[in-house]
Computed example of a mutant assay.
Amino acid sequence: MVHPKMTLIEHTKPWKNITWTPDFYSPFFNRYIEVKGVLTDSFKLKMQLLQYLNPGLVNQCWFVVRETSYRWQGISFINIDEFQEILNNLEIPRANNE
């Protein structure tokens, strides 16, 4: 599945629902993948809401950035090269005919 949409807060009239749409979801790894160029105020608010409303979900996400890895309010952002290394080191089951 690509671009799953999660409603963080709904029925908040007169405002619209607050949603977060991760870039990808990998059922193989059971992880959401969010690639960030810049931490916008909107994204920061959504991540604070996500941590408050569903704290375990943040641990099911990979937040990938181009610059140096860092932590922001409990969220780990990993450099894209480190992310590639994580993927390379994961045990991936192979089909019997490979």
Rank of each mutant, 00 (worst) to 15 (best):
M1Y: 04
M1S: 10
M1R: 02
V2W: 02
H3C: 09
H3P: 01
H3I: 05
P4M: 08
K5V: 15
K5T: 15
M6W: 09
M6L: 14
M6H: 07
M6R: 06
I9R: 12
E10L: 13
E10M: 11
T12H: 06
T12E: 10
T12Y: 05
K13R: 09
P14A: 05
P14I: 10
P14T: 07
P14W: 12
W15G: 01
K16P: 02
N17Q: 05
I18P: 03
T19M: 06
W20A: 02
T21L: 03
T21E: 08
P22S: 06
Y25M: 03
Y25P: 00
S26N: 06
S26L: 03
P27F: 10
P27W: 11
F28A: 09
N30E: 14
R31I: 13
Y32V: 06
Y32K: 02
Y32S: 01
I33W: 07
I33G: 07
I33D: 07
I33K: 02
I33C: 04
E34A: 04
E34G: 02
E34I: 14
G37R: 10
G37T: 15
V38P: 00
T40C: 04
T40V: 07
F43Y: 14
K44N: 06
K44Q: 10
K44F: 03
L45Q: 10
L45M: 13
M47A: 11
M47E: 11
Q48V: 12
Q48H: 09
Q48D: 13
Q48Y: 04
Q48G: 01
L49P: 04
L50H: 01
L53D: 00
N54T: 12
G56S: 11
G56Y: 15
V58Q: 02
N59V: 00
N59G: 14
N59E: 15
N59F: 13
C61A: 15
F63Q: 02
F63D: 02
V65D: 02
R66H: 06
R66P: 01
T68P: 00
T68I: 14
S69N: 05
Y70P: 00
Y70W: 03
Y70H: 14
R71E: 15
R71G: 00
R71K: 11
W72G: 07
W72S: 02
Q73I: 13
Q73T: 09
G74Q: 05
G74K: 09
G74L: 10
I75M: 10
S76T: 14
F77G: 05
F77P: 06
F77I: 08
E82T: 05
E82K: 12
Q84M: 09
I86S: 01
I86D: 01
L87F: 09
L87G: 03
N89M: 06
N89W: 02
N89R: 07
N89T: 03
N89A: 02
L90A: 08
E91C: 08
E91V: 11
E91Y: 12
P93F: 09
P93E: 11
R94C: 01
A95T: 10
E98H: 10
E98M: 12
E98D: 14
